[in-house]
Amino acid sequence: MKLKLAVYWTGSCGGCDVSFLELGPGLLDVLPQLEIVFWPALVDAKRGDLEKLPSRSIDVALVNGVIRTAENKEMVELLREKSKQLGAYGACAHLGGVPALANHAPGFTEVVFGPGFRPASPWPEAPEDAPPALLPEALPLDEVVPVDFVVPGCPPPAGLIARFFQAALSGEVQAGQVFAEDKALCEECPRTREERRLTRIVRPHEVVPDPKTCLLDQGMVCLGPVTRGGCQAACPQAGMPCTGCLGPTPKAGDPALAMLSALASLVRAGEEGEDAFPQENQILDSLVDPIGTLYKYAYAKYARPLQRLARRREEVRA
């Protein structure tokens, strides 16, 4: 019996669809065991074909991309209904991803599309030439439908894809499973950590990092300590700080707040104590684009409670 697989993209760059090729020759072992029932990027199938499938007839469905439009929402609800197990594949479906940073700029359609932006009316009256209506916020998959498991990453690294297929093909995907490590990726990172202190903050293009020592110690805001391992610290190994695509470790909570707290703990300007505060604040203030840096992928998932709080505060004040 082949595994009936569906793969669908919502608000996505397409990288996740391509990422399966990362398996390389391993793909040749996996493919014969799959029956692809729906995968718009790969095989021709339309919404109507999916609707015709019996309920729960798909073994595993993978959704990549953020839920951005009314159409995205309808499609994943449909997939949910047709699938035994539904997984978030990639950072956008998992956490909201880069596209969800738009939530930080309400009214962005005006800026991006100009005042003439007119979304289409809802399905099935939608005209061919108009984009589907936008949801008020870009959402991670689990805000829309129940999600059984996560294959994280931007895009998911080969090792984790392989681990997923191994589990899926033997029918061993656990409810709530995240195909990554519980420990942060510092565990896998070969860089050495010596004096843990942050005396400056630099952006990757500003320095040529030392190849051996921890990037955080060199002033780069590396989200490694707050991010699940599973990628073999691919970015830090290549001299780029981790941006957190595998998502926060299980107990980290909001990764941006956790990292901010860590940065505030690490910052040092001269002798410890109150006298150093102004200078230490200056160092922390030199973090350019804190939201884009610390919430690069996780803004939709974690900043929403904060946004709700902010809104509530506005209401209470009013």
Binding site: D182, K183, L185, E187, G224, P225, G229, T249
Partner: peptide
């Protein structure tokens, strides 16, 4: 320390 979760990043020690 929850050793199942600790990655040994070492941010805690100097604090």
């Amino acid at each position: 320390v929850n050793e199942e979760l600790c990655s040994g990043c070492g941010i805690c020690a100097p604090q």
